[in-house]
Design a protein around this nucleic acid. Sequence first.
DNA 1: CAAAGTCTGTCAAATAGTTAACAAGGCATT
DNA 2: AATGCCTTGTTAACTATTTGACAGACTTTG
Lengths: 210, 210
Amino acid sequence: MKDKNISVAVIRRLPKYHRYLKEMLDNDIKRISSKELSKMIGFTASQIRQDLNNFGGFGQQGYGYNVEDLYNEIGKILGLTRNYNVVIVGAGNLGQALANYSSFDKLGFKLKAMFDVNPKLIGLKINNVEVHDMDKFEDFVKANDIEIVYICTSRDGAQDVADKIQKTPVEAIWNFAPIDLKIKSDVIVENIHLIDNLLTVSYFLKGKME
Amino acid sequence: MKDKNISVAVIRRLPKYHRYLKEMLDNDIKRISSKELSKMIGFTASQIRQDLNNFGGFGQQGYGYNVEDLYNEIGKILGLTRNYNVVIVGAGNLGQALANYSSFDKLGFKLKAMFDVNPKLIGLKINNVEVHDMDKFEDFVKANDIEIVYICTSRDGAQDVADKIQKTPVEAIWNFAPIDLKIKSDVIVENIHLIDNLLTVSYFLKGKME
DNA sequence: CAAAGTCTGTCAAATAGTTAACAAGGCATT
DNA sequence: AATGCCTTGTTAACTATTTGACAGACTTTG
């Protein structure tokens, strides 16, 4: 399964398939056709078949797709076959919110520690995970095979964290700070730019009013 | 400025322009060419000119763009010329995090109230905004000209909130619950699907390892 | 077990989005 | 005030993505 030449557009749809298939699985639905899935998920049936075929022929003519198999296959494609060690930097409300989401844990993203510079937060336990002093970050990350860091600091702290990360074997950053991190190495960066997203809301709102 | 036929791809880049222009403004940079901006922002110069030209000729040949003017123009396009009344449903960590972000307020998104079903949270004040009982939601929203609702509930509570919203004049939803809301009216929905985003991280991580 | 119906995989067509190229016009400098 | 340099706006070429169409394969049903 050498996923070469798969476009990002396709990749970003995969989690949605995964989500809907999980729901079907929970509702004991055994099979699904691209047409039915289309109705639920809102993509065209053609697109669904095209998307899935990038990774192999998971369906069967005259039958459709086996929900459980397809769910597992997409899980594999998304890298959900093993656990990832994770830490959160920034133990404010947002960091705590992420620490408390059990769904990340269930998918294999295992939170090993949190870090902050604020003495009031250091030592706290959130959902059984301890908040450490940021001083300990590099050592901890190296010693515990951390692969992903969620950056939940303020805008100003984020680049510092990114710089520190580049001195470690960390492979990926999930960034919530409203800034584009400058990264020299090949660390993967995925951003949640809340403000950017909110501004599209006001754009469309404005369009409605006119 | 009849923004007809503008593609969503363009719209989603506008907030990024806005963000970079703000930074330049703060650094007293008066003018910028598409080429320089390209270097900073990572889009091609051609794309930048193309994007901006969808909305009008903001630049000047031989000179470039006036940073302040362009910032203001993009602000206008994004609907940042007035305030929006907002409430948050779900006063857990995430709701509280959003309530505490001053940047939303600065851009004109004015938080008027929060709502929750949890008696322990009701009555609390977060950043000077009170948490009300969810029972009061519809009345409050109607009485206070609320236009945008941020849904920060669990997955299970979200659709109920969406249903309630459709009985009010609320125009837009910013949804953080991991579900695609079923909406019959023409309410604008913008989703932050954290899990979907995180799964793209594991996808790319997996790709790196191979 | 054969006929009728369904549904995938895939190729081709259509649409959308991005990049390249350049003419025309303003700026800066002498 | 004229020359040369920049930089936009814009058109056209190119690339990517989505949709449509259908042959072939499997399922279902009687």
